Amino acid sequence: MPDIRVKSEIAGSVWKVLKQPGEAVAAEEDVLLLESMKMEIPVPAPRAGTVLELLVVEGEAVAEGDVVAVIRAA
């Protein structure tokens, strides 16, 4: 099964990283939180698996559609 690219659905900045590479993640579990217009926006994993790579760090700005993490599906 191919790796899953987790994308930001909104422009904002990475407020908090919740999962690190090597950690398991459930389907719809939040991988990180974005801050946009003073709101916290969760970025969930679309499927269960293991976080392979985080492509952003806390405080970094992201655009809508940016890939923020890669997950290997379970």
Rank of each mutant, 00 (worst) to 15 (best):
M37P: 11
Q20T: 06
E40W: 00
E23Q: 15
E29D: 13
K19W: 05
P44L: 11
V17D: 05
E35P: 04
L52S: 06
V51Q: 00
L32A: 09
A26R: 14
L34V: 06
E29G: 07
M37G: 11
I41W: 01
L34C: 11
A27T: 14
V25R: 02
L32C: 10
A24W: 10
G49M: 02
D30M: 07
L55T: 08
V57F: 01
P44E: 12
T50V: 15
A45P: 00
V17T: 07
E58A: 05
A48Q: 10
A48D: 12
L33R: 10
G49F: 01
L32V: 13
P21H: 13
P46L: 07
E23C: 09
E58D: 02
A24D: 14
L33K: 12
L33C: 11
E53Y: 10
E23S: 10
K38Y: 01
E29I: 13
E58Y: 03
E40N: 14
Q20P: 01
M39S: 09
L52Q: 09
L33W: 14
E28A: 09
E29P: 03
L52N: 05
M39T: 08
M37F: 03
G49I: 00
P42E: 06
E58H: 01
P44C: 04
A48Y: 09
A27F: 08
A48W: 08
E53V: 08
V14P: 01
S36R: 12
T50Q: 15
E40F: 00
L55C: 01
L32I: 12
L32T: 13
L32Y: 11
E58K: 00
G22H: 09
L52H: 01
A27N: 12
W15N: 09
V14R: 06
M37T: 11
D30C: 09
G22V: 09
P42L: 02
M39V: 12
L55M: 14
I41A: 04
P44W: 07
V51R: 03
V56P: 07
K16N: 04
V51Y: 04
P21Q: 05
V17R: 05
Q20L: 10
V51D: 00
G49K: 01
K38T: 05
V25L: 04
G22D: 10
Q20H: 08
V25M: 08
K38S: 02
L33F: 13
L52G: 02
L32S: 09
P42T: 01
L54E: 03
V51N: 02
L34M: 02
V56F: 04
K16M: 08
A24P: 10
D30W: 06
L54I: 08
V57L: 01
